[in-house]
C-alpha cells in the first residue's frame, strides 16, 4: 500500500515536470504551427546553464543561479527563433521539421562537447526525505509541485486575463486574421518563445534537481511531452497539463508491473494507443 502511494506521488512529480514541457511545446505549436524538435534541448540546456552557474569558477548558490539560467534559456530560445525559424516562416513543413531536428542535434552535441556524455548532478548531498503516511518526499520534490502549480496559475492569468494572452490566443487561431485586426504578431511570437523557453528551462532544472543531468535528457523528454500533448489534444494548453499528469502517473505505476528498463517506452506505448483509439481527434483538432 505504501509502495503504491509512493508510486502515485512519484507519478505526480514526474507529471508536473512533463506538464511544464508539454505546455511549452504546445504553445509553440499553437502559434507557429510546427512541432519544435529542439524543445527537448531547451529543457536540457536550461539544466546545464544552471550547472554552469553553480559550478566553479562561478559557483553561485541555487537561488541566485536559477534566474540567470532561465534568462540564458530564454535567450537561446529567442535566438533559435530569430536565426533559424524566422527565416523559415514561409517554408513548408518538412523544411521546418528538418531544421528543428538539425538544431536539436546541434544543441545536444554542443552540450556533449562542453560537458561530455557522462551523468552529472548539481552536487547536493542526498538528504532523507520527509515522511508522511509512509510516503517519502524531499524538499526538492515539494519545490517541483509548488513551482508547477505557480506556473500553471500564472499561465492561466496570462492567457485569459491579459491583453498579451488574448493576442497569443488570436495568433494561434489564425496568424493572418490576427494581423488584420492589428495584433503585433512578431511581438506575440517572441513572447510565446519567452514563455515556452522559461517553461522548458524550469522543467529541466527541476528534473535535474530531482534526478541528474545528461545530454540525452532532452530527447527522451521531448517524446514524453509529445505524448502528453497528443493525449490532451494538440494545441490545447490545459490538455497538455492533464496529459503530462497522466503520462507521469502511468509511467510510475507501470514499472510496478513491467521491467523498469522499459519505463521510457511507456509514453510511446500510450502514444500509439491514442493514435489507434482516437485518430480523428488528433488529426483534425486544429482545423
Amino acid at each position: 500500500m505504501e509502495y503504491l502511494l509512493q508510486s502515485i506521488l512519484n507519478g505526480i512529480l514526474a507529471g508536473c515536470i512533463y506538464a511544464l514541457f508539454a505546455m511549452g511545446l504546445t504553445l509553440i505549436y499553437g502559434v507557429l504551427n510546427f512541432v519544435n524538435f529542439a524543445h527537448g534541448e531547451l529543457i536540457m540546456w536550461g539544466a546545464y546553464f544552471l550547472y554552469l552557474l553553480m559550478e566553479k569558477p562561478i559557483g553561485l548558490p541555487l537561488f541566485l543561479a536559477f534566474i540567470p539560467a532561465l534568462l540564458f534559456t530564454t535567450i537561446l530560445g529567442l535566438g533559435t527563433d530569430h536565426f533559424i525559424f524566422r527565416p523559415l516562416r514561409q517554408a513548408n513543413r518538412l523544411t521546418l521539421l528538418i531544421a528543428s531536428l538539425g538544431l536539436s542535434f546541434l544543441l545536444r552535441n554542443g552540450a556533449q562537447f562542453f560537458w561530455g556524455a557522462e551523468i552529472r548532478t548539481y552536487g547536493f548531498e542526498i538528504r532523507r526525505g520527509m515522511r508522511f503516511w509512509g510516503v517519502s518526499i524531499t524538499s526538492n520534490q515539494v519545490a517541483i509541485i509548488i513551482v508547477s502549480v505557480v506556473c500553471v496559475a500564472l499561465l492561466y492569468l496570462l492567457f485569459y486575463k491579459s491583453r498579451l494572452g488574448k493576442s497569443m490566443r488570436a495568433v494561434s487561431d489564425s496568424l493572418e486574421l490576427s494581423r488584420v485586426v492589428g495584433i503585433n504578431s512578431k511581438k506575440t511570437i517572441r513572447f510565446t518563445w519567452v514563455i515556452a523557453s522559461i517553461l522548458a528551462g524550469l522543467g529541466g532544472i527541476l528534473l535535474a534537481l530531482d534526478t541528474n543531468l545528461q545530454p540525452g535528457m532532452g530527447l527522451i523528454n521531448l517524446v514524453k511531452a509529445f505524448a502528453a500533448t497528443l493525449l490532451g489534444g494538440v494545441g490545447n494548453l490545459w490538455g497538455a497539463l492533464l496529459g503530462g499528469m497522466v503520462i507521469g502517473l502511468v509511467e510510475n505505476l507501470g514499472v510496478l508491473v513491467i521491467s523498469p528498463g522499459y519505463k521510457d517506452a511507456i509514453a510511446f506505448g500510450i502514444m500509439i494507443l491514442m493514435l489507434l483509439l482516437r485518430p480523428m481527434v488528433l488529426l483534425g483538432s486544429k482545423e
Binding site: L101, V234, F268
Partner: peptide, 21 residues
C-alpha cells in the same frame, strides 16, 4: 498501421519515438 494515420509532423515524432524504443 497506427502511425500513418497521423499528419506529417506527428508522424515524424511517432517514428522518432519508435527509433528510441
Amino acid at each position: 498501421l497506427p502511425s500513418l494515420r497521423l499528419r506529417g509532423d506527428y508522424f515524424g515524432i511517432a517514428t522518432l519515438g519508435f527509433g528510441e524504443i
